[in-house]
Structure formats: C-alpha cells, structure tokens
C-alpha cells in the first residue's frame, strides 16, 4: 500500500472503512435472511466474518479513544502520586501466548514509571516472561530512556523458578531469592536495593499476567501479608475474578487490552511528552470494537431466531 499523497491517504482509508462496514452489514443481513428462512449456516462463515472484522481495521487503522474507568485511573493516579525515587516492582508473569494482550500495558507502565523518575525492579515468575521483559528493554527502556542506568534507575532480576515459593521468600528477603540480578551483579552492588530489603519496602508492586502464578498469588503471598500496595494488569479472561480485590487488596487493575488502551489514552491526554508514544493497545481496540459489534449482531440474530423457533414449536 504505497501512499502517494496525504489527500489520497485519507480517502483510501475512508474508502476502506466504508467498504468494510458495507460488506459486513450486507453479510449480516444475508446471514439473518438465510437463517430466518430456515437454512443452516456453516460455522465457517462466522469465522470469515470475525476474520474480516478483525483484519480490516488493522489494514485501515481504525482507532478510537477511551476514557479511563475508575479502576484504571486509580493505578494511573497512584503512579502519578509517587514521589521521584520511589521504587516500583513490575513482575512479568506471562508468556508469549498472552503477550498481545498484556505487553502493551507492561510497556506503558514502564514508560510511565521511568518518565516519573521512579526506580523499577523487573522480575518474572514465568520462564518465558524473560523474553517479554527483553522486549520492553529493547523498545522502551533502552530506546526511550538511554540515560537511565542499569542498577541505578532499574534492575532486571530475571526469572526465578518456584512461583509462590519465590513470593513467600521475597516478602521478607530479596537477597535470599535473588543473590544476583540477571547479569550476575551481586545484590549488594545494586543501588536500587540500597533501601530495599524486601517487598515490604516497595512503594508499589505491579504484576502483569493472567496465569498462575500471577496476581492472585501476589496478593495472597505479598500484598496482604506484607501490606504492600499492589496493582495489576491482566489478560481479559481472568479480570472478572480479580475485581473483588479492588480497592482494598489491589488499588488498580487493567483488564485486557481495553484496560491498556484506557491507560495509554490517559497518559497521552495528561502529558505532552507522551503525545507521540506508540499505543499498541489503542490500535488493537479498533479491530476489537468492530469484532464486538459483529459478535453482538450474531447474538441478537441468534436470539431472534431462538425465540421465533420456540414460538413456532409452542404454536
């Protein structure tokens, strides 16, 4: 897709979006008519609809803006309110399979914390989280904050096997679990840890994940026993199960890509310096929105047919 001039670019995008909407609308009408007249609809047609409604917004870059809901702004406000020099722990408790959903929030949170001069301790409870951590280092930490120094402004502790066992130890003693960081620098030589002996000295812990061990284990083993402020960014599937912990046991929660998009939007709205930051989650909400509309249309069509058939059977 070579773009010749801005005018053409705008029109190409508009044409694309319009065409997509028309095709999807016509398709749904056809689907409704077909099933209404009692013919079976192959499930593969539904797959094509979903593929189309996801692919088109990616190609034509449809995006929306989102207002942060209280549970998201609570985390944002907490990060904003921490004084410079406070220490935040960000734990990467996810693997590449979950990454499309939660990597955007991990990046946004790292960017936000570093720009506010907070010190970050990175670690992961998922073995493959280490790779995702490297991704953040490559795209955010080293790229956007070249002046921040390893060991002084942030430290990467890497992966430690043991899940809850690790948490059970670091709630009272970091050094016991992490005698060195990921680059074998001894604990005592890492400046970030000068005033940090255990999780209880931290100002905020953010667990990003969606599996086990994850945020629930953090709350159970560190947040509650250590009285440490906790927040989380999680894959959408587990978000509803974590709501009961808000606001007493976790102070904020980013649920799925929507939570991440809301966080990105809030960062962009409130800080001039983030105007041009990459917003992968917001970009992802375009396909999300269209796909959700299509799914809702399916549900409505399905229910109309269900009630009609029920009435017919009764009649």
């Amino acid at each position: 897709m070579t773009v010749l001039n801005p005018l053409f670019a705008i029109s190409a995008q508009t044409i694309g979006i319009t065409l997509t909407l028309i095709i999807i609308g016509l398709g749904l009408a056809w689907l409704f008519w077909r099933s209404f007249s009692g013919k079976e609809v192959d499930r593969r047609i539904i797959f094509i609809f979903i593929f189309f409604s996801v692919a088109a917004p990616i190609l034509f870059k449809i995006s929306f803006t989102f207002k942060a809901i209280p549970i998201v702004s609570a985390l944002y406000d907490k990060v904003e309110s921490l004084p410079a020099g406070s220490t935040v722990l960000i734990s990467y408790d996810f693997d590449p399979a979950m990454a499309p959903e939660v990597q955007p929030m991990a990046d946004a949170l790292s960017r936000h914390c570093l720009s506010r001069d907070l010190k970050i301790i990175y670690m992961c409870l998922f073995p493959t989280g280490q790779g995702q951590l490297e991704e953040t280092f490559r795209t955010v930490v080293r790229e956007e904050f070249p002046n921040k120094k390893d060991g002084i402004d942030f430290v990467n502790l890497g992966y430690k096997a043991g899940g809850e066992g690790v948490l059970n130890v670091i709630v009272t003693d970091f050094e016991k679990m992490f005698p060195t960081d990921v680059n074998s620098v001894p604990y005592g030589d890492i400046q970030v840890f000068d005033n940090i002996k255990s999780c209880q000295n931290l100002d905020l812990i953010i667990s990003i994940g969606g599996g086990r061990p994850g945020i629930k284990e953090w709350v159970l083993f560190v947040g509650d026993p250590g009285n440490v402020p906790m927040a989380a960014g999680v894959a959408a599937v587990v978000a509803p199960q974590l709501y009961p912990y808000f606001p007493n046991q976790i102070l904020g929660l980013l649920g799925g890509v929507k939570g991440a998009a809301e966080y990105e939007n809030k960062m962009r709205d409130e800080h001039e310096q983030f105007k041009d930051m990459p917003t992968p989650a917001t970009t992802m909400m375009g396909p999300q929105t269209l796909a959700h509309i299509v799914v809702m249309a399916f549900i409505i069509i399905g229910n109309i047919l269900y009630f009609r058939n029920k009435r017919r059977e009764e009649g």
């Binding site: 060195t180 074998s184 620098v185 001894p186 005592g188 030589d189």
Partner: peptide, 14 residues
C-alpha cells in the same frame, strides 16, 4: 568478605 565474593564471582568491574 564482599570483595572476596566479587572476586570469586568475577564481578569486580564495578
């Protein structure tokens, strides 16, 4: 002790 530890771990560069 800490210095010895660092020598043993080859992390004296700091």
């Amino acid at each position: 002790l800490s210095v010895i530890q660092r020598i043993l771990r080859n992390t004296t560069s700091g």
